[in-house]
Design a protein around this nucleic acid. Sequence first.
DNA 1: GAGACTCCTTATACGGTGTACGAGGCGCGG
DNA 2: CCGCGCCTCGTACACCGTATAAGGAGTCTC
Lengths: 257, 257
Amino acid sequence: MVKAADRAKNPAGSSVWLEQRAPRSGGGPAGLDRDRIVAASVRMLDRDGLGGFSMRRLAAELGVTAMSLYWYVDTKDDIIEYAIDTVYREIDLDAVDAGADWRERIRTLALDYRRMLVRHPWMSPCAGQYLNIGPCAIAVGSRIQEAIRGTGLPLSGQPGAMSAVFQFVYGYGTIESQFERRAAEAGMSQDDFYTGSVAAFRDDPQFREALEPMTDILDERASHGSVTDIWERDFAYALDILVAGIEAMVARESAGT
Amino acid sequence: MVKAADRAKNPAGSSVWLEQRAPRSGGGPAGLDRDRIVAASVRMLDRDGLGGFSMRRLAAELGVTAMSLYWYVDTKDDIIEYAIDTVYREIDLDAVDAGADWRERIRTLALDYRRMLVRHPWMSPCAGQYLNIGPCAIAVGSRIQEAIRGTGLPLSGQPGAMSAVFQFVYGYGTIESQFERRAAEAGMSQDDFYTGSVAAFRDDPQFREALEPMTDILDERASHGSVTDIWERDFAYALDILVAGIEAMVARESAGT
DNA sequence: GAGACTCCTTATACGGTGTACGAGGCGCGG
DNA sequence: CCGCGCCTCGTACACCGTATAAGGAGTCTC
């Protein structure tokens, strides 16, 4: 095993996935196991959030002391990297492959990716800080790249298109999951939380002015059903924009500009 | 002042910007001041990152003990929320207003927003976790909303368009700033760091397979100058896609679909 | 059966964190 | 001079990640 202190010496590629070691099997009395540890971590992260996730608490949940975990894992960050890669597996790549054309494949991927981020609100803050080069993350990345390749955009445009679509999904999933988390922490439904927040803002003189020019948008949204419906609708519309934009760029390129 | 423990009781809107208190002026011997604290925090966050930012270290830099800070501020999170709003001020809204049409205004806003995220790599991880309803953040938000309104999209589509553009910018700025941070931590130029990473991946049998189908893209990128140029180019292309997409949706709506 | 060796778990300890609490010191109005 | 507000500090608590070393259980060897 590698001491955490030594890991920092290789900052360029500090990641579990580089310098990989064979997992240690769970022959011990506690029946521990890297997979069991990671699975418990995901459960705990989902339940308690990133702030409520500590080595001691995780160990307690597994009926063991904190230091036992270090037999299977070098650092807490490694566990998080494993957890990240685990949840990437939730994206159903077979369903993506079944898509008829690049439009459908991109939509399926985007929706699945977004759902994954919302299911695991700790993901987006973490994902930004690690390399995300585990096998599952890479499999998803390859599929994204293939889908973009299918658009017919020139090579020089494909990275930009990939960013436009999937950085958007990342950002959207981040906002949505944080909203859901806040509502849950307040013990409210998303609808109650939303209408409560809007009302609170409207009453606060400090925010009334800023809110006023968007009254029409707020009204339109309020008349359009539940908050979760609105999340779906806005996301779908954004994807429509992106698909239309890619189509327009493809047309522009083939027009010889 | 409000004890940190009590703050948690209002999880719905836990933010400095709700329940606001007048800033305490710096009449004390240390010449302290909320503004001075926040300015020092931004400096420290830029230099040492989020992980290197602690109350004790911040206090030391101000020539004071940690507990002194709590006279001006309730919690560490409050400082971060103030810091976030401070850097939003770097987005030049006057330059946005000078834009000729919505295309230019959106482009200016997006570029400024991205630059701000890259200048302050701690921003993106933080921004996702707070409400960002400080005065400067709200001013930027209003300007974004105005710009989107200028596209001529129907009300129902404007939130989606706003997400498509600015969640993308957020995601892109996140990735870019993390890359820059990693390169800096490794003590390399971005170019050296990039080519080194690609080479390392190509040599590692575990990644060779995943990298192989994107050889053409990597070659195209390698032939296209420095990494920073590529960041610019991809970002610009993605913005082109978004603008083209919005135009297409406007045309589609006015065609009466 | 005794010893050694490997695998796993543990106890203890270090240096850090955010921050609650209470004791001061300093300047000012009475 | 006294008290009172403002501001700073010392101390302490609970918690964190993890380095280090010791301990226990099983198995293999002689």
